[in-house]
C-alpha cells in the first residue's frame, strides 16, 4: 500500500488509518508535527522502519548516531531519531511496548541465505519491500540504511553478545512517533519466518496518523 499526506483541518484529526498486511509495506508522508502510531495488532510483530527528510532523502535516519546520542542501545519514549547530519528527524512520544531495536537491521534474501541456508533464498524479505515502496520517493539501494525494528527484541549484553529473542510486545501494544520535520516513513511489516522476531508467524499492523 502507498499512503500520502492528507490535509487535515485540525492538528489532531485522524489523517491515516490503515492496516498493513503481514509481509507488506508502506510509504507514508508525515508532516512536521504529525504523529504516527504503529499498532502491533496481534503481538510480537517486527516493524522495520526507515525515516527520511521528505525534502532531502540524503538526510536520513542513522541508527548508530541515534544510539550514540542517547548513550543507550534500545529505543523507547523520549528517544530522538537522528539523521546522518545529526538532525532530529522524529521523537518517540509514546510506547506501550517498552523497548525497540535499531541494531538488528532488516532481513534480506541474501542475509537469510547466510543465516538460515540456501532454502531461504527466495523467501520474501524486508529489503525487497523497502526497495519496492521506496522507489516512489527515489529511495533505492544506496539510500537504504540501518533501520528501526519496532517491537523487536534484540538483547545486547555487557559481554558483547547479541541475539534475537522472543518479543516483549503483545496484541494492541503501540508506539507513537512525532515528526520533527516533514518525513518519508518507509515501513516493511517483516515477513521473516526463520527466527522469533515475528513469533514465527508474521501478522498485520495498523498505522494511525494524526496531523
Amino acid at each position: 500500500m502507498t499512503v500520502t499526506k492528507t490535509t487535515a483541518s485540525t492538528s489532531t484529526a485522524v489523517a491515516l488509518d490503515t492496516v498493513v498486511d503481514a509481509g507488506d509495506g508502506a510509504l507514508v508522508t508525515v508532516p512536521s508535527g504529525g504523529r504516527l502510531q504503529i499498532v502491533d495488532l496481534h503481538g510480537n510483530q517486527a516493524v522495520d522502519t526507515l525515516f527520511y527528510d521528505a525534502h532531502d532523502i540524503d538526510n536520513r535516519y542513522s541508527a548508530f548516531d541515534t544510539i550514540r546520542e542517547q548513550r543507550a542501545v534500545f529505543l523507547t519514549t523520549g528517544s530522538r531519531l537522528m539523521s546522518t547530519r545529526l538532525d532530529e528527524l522524529a521523537v518517540i512520544t509514546d510506547d506501550t511496548c517498552g523497548r525497540h531495536d535499531t541494531v538488528g537491521g532488516a532481513c534480506s534474501q541474501e542475509s537469510n541465505v547466510i543465516r538460515y541456508g540456501e532454502s531461504t533464498r527466495h523467501q520474501h524479505a524486508c529489503r525487497q519491500t523497502f526497495l519496492r515502496y521506496g522507489a516512489r520517493a527515489g529511495i533505492g539501494q544506496r539510500q537504504l540504511t540501518h533501520n528501526v525494528n519496532f517491537f523487536m527484541n534484540v538483547p545486547v549484553t555487557s559481554s558483547g553478545g547479541l541475539t534475537f529473542e522472543d518479543g516483549l510486545s503483545a496484541p494492541g501494544k503501540y508506539v507513537e512517533i512525532t515528526a520533527s520535520r516533514d518525513l518519508f516513513v518507509l515501513i516493511s511489516n517483516c515477513p521473516q519466518v526463520n527466527n522469533p522476531c515475528n513469533g514465527w508467524d508474521p501478522t498485520p499492523i495498523q498505522l494511525l496518523g494524526r496531523w
Partner: peptide
Amino acid sequence: IPDTLKSQMSARIKPGMVLMSD
C-alpha cells in the same frame, strides 16, 4: 554492520569475524 553482527551473534568486532556486505 547489522548483518555482520546478527549473523555472528556479536555486538562488537573481534578476530574471527567476517565483515559482511549489504
